[in-house]
Design a protein around this nucleic acid. Structure first.
Lengths: 254, 254
DNA sequence: TTTTCAATGCGTAAATTTTACACAAAGAAA
DNA sequence: TTTCTTTGTGTAAAATTTACGCATTGAAAA
């Protein structure tokens, strides 16, 4: 399907692309999904081009579905990157040579390596549900801890930084967690998510009070057993209330 | 310079444009700058295309300078509009016919009326300093009260709405006013600006206390005379402190 | 010239929100 | 059975936000 670049670009916008920073939460850490380009050790964010009959949001959803196996993930546009030099942050020449060794000499001529404006999205997904899937351009797709993200191709490190800022702003003004946590979770787990995203600690009693005051959580009659301590209750988001608060906005002030 | 579309698009990105919502504050009201297309009564936001050797931000600045006569205005990107149908919100056919009557039959064929992704910026300017200037595409450029903005071409009404939301968010999290007010202003004038942007009233004593607590204003030894009441003091932003607060962010909570 | 009137300058009390903090109970491991 | 870590719950202090009164000013009206 996408094996012939010229054919593909007859059906897609050339000068605009989009890139997604996909956030997952696992073992108390934020993770992002990265792709390794075929025959190289260069990593980048998942992304792609917008088809002619598709909106930017639709394209982001399509690409996300292809990379994760999930449909209907939480997606938010946060910034559009339009610097002239956004494709020369890294030693492109070496990369190009390696890619041409894989795809054939001249394969990319005049197509990819021009300035492209890229719309940045971030996505929130449930870590365990994701099936990381490379695209035709890459041969590896996997999670990276945010702290261990290497130097990426293009301006993708900057994209992740901005995505993180946007995520933090989101977390301060709207409820968060529905898309990142499994259906049932404990209060300490939710607190750890907030602490990780906002990069600060909270008093566990005050945290519980504040979160419960939003009236978006339901405490279940189950507990999480197995740990060497008192079993914590399990909670679940009440979708309607959560969405309501998501429309109105709340202020997470702590 | 821009009289030949094909020549122009050899030097610019075609599939991406940008549009600016320019906010001014005058007589207690927010105003926006609109352009009327040549030979029609269709109005739109000022906008244009990005040159090949130019970043999106540079392009926005260039276009803004051309439309207002000002350089270094406050500019903020807030959203990118990528809907497939963003060019068919209005009766394009009639518009096209009128335009062709002005510019010549076939002038726009295959160039303008395809889907273009547009980066939305909003700008804050000092009302009195602006010299509204039409571009080669339009023959009128003037201020409109926000409340009286007519049905605009394309998705520009939606753009203004989103720009206003972004402006409000900005005003809640960062100091605002430096770019919208003249150098010297009274406290009630600043308060009216905040009330207009945020669309609510504040207690004048509490407003003064809160604003002064940010330590970004300097009270001058002058007063505004002429009105039939006690003369209010004049204030001025202390640029360094204002920028500092702009970098850190404040929370306008009232 | 004096009076009137609307708007400004300044300060304090009440209400609400945020922060700080302690002890009993549960459950696996020792 | 004891130990150890973590959870569940409530209250007081501190800080912030809101509500509000009164004297003063300056142009306009009398």
């Amino acid at each position: 399907m996408e094996h012939n670049l010229k054919e593909f670009f007859d059906k897609a916008l050339k000068e605009v692309s989009l890139d997604c920073t996909v956030f997952g939460f696992h073992e108390g850490e934020l993770k992002v999904l990265l792709l390794r380009w075929k025959g190289t050790d260069g990593w980048s964010l998942p992304g792609g081009h917008i088809l002619l009959d598709e909106s930017a949001d639709d394209a982001a959803n399509r690409i996300l579905t292809q990379r994760t196996g999930l449909s209907d993930v939480y997606l938010q546009q946060f910034h559009t990157f339009g610097n002239v030099n956004r494709y020369i942050y890294h030693p492109e020449k070496e990369l190009l040579e390696k890619l041409e060794a894989t795809f054939g000499k001249g394969f990319f001529d005049g197509i990819i390596f021009r300035r492209v404006v890229s719309i940045g999205y971030f996505a929130l997904v449930e870590f365990d549900q994701v099936q990381p899937t490379p695209d035709w351009f890459t041969d590896e797709c996997r999670w990276w801890s945010l702290a261990e993200v290497p130097n990426l191709l293009f301006d993708h490190n900057e994209m992740i930084e901005r995505a993180l800022k946007a995520l933090r702003q989101r977390a301060r003004n709207y409820p968060i967690g529905y898309n990142l946590l499994p259906e049932k979770f404990t209060m300490p787990e939710l607190q750890r998510l907030y602490e990780t995203i906002l990069d600060r600690q909270f008093d566990r009693r005050n945290f519980q009070k504040l979160i419960m005051s939003y009236d978006i959580l339901e405490r279940l009659d189950e507990k999480r057993i197995g740990a060497a301590n008192k079993s914590p209750y399990l909670y679940r988001f009440v979708k309607e209330k959560y969405d309501e608060a998501g429309a109105t906005g709340i202020s997470f002030s702590m």
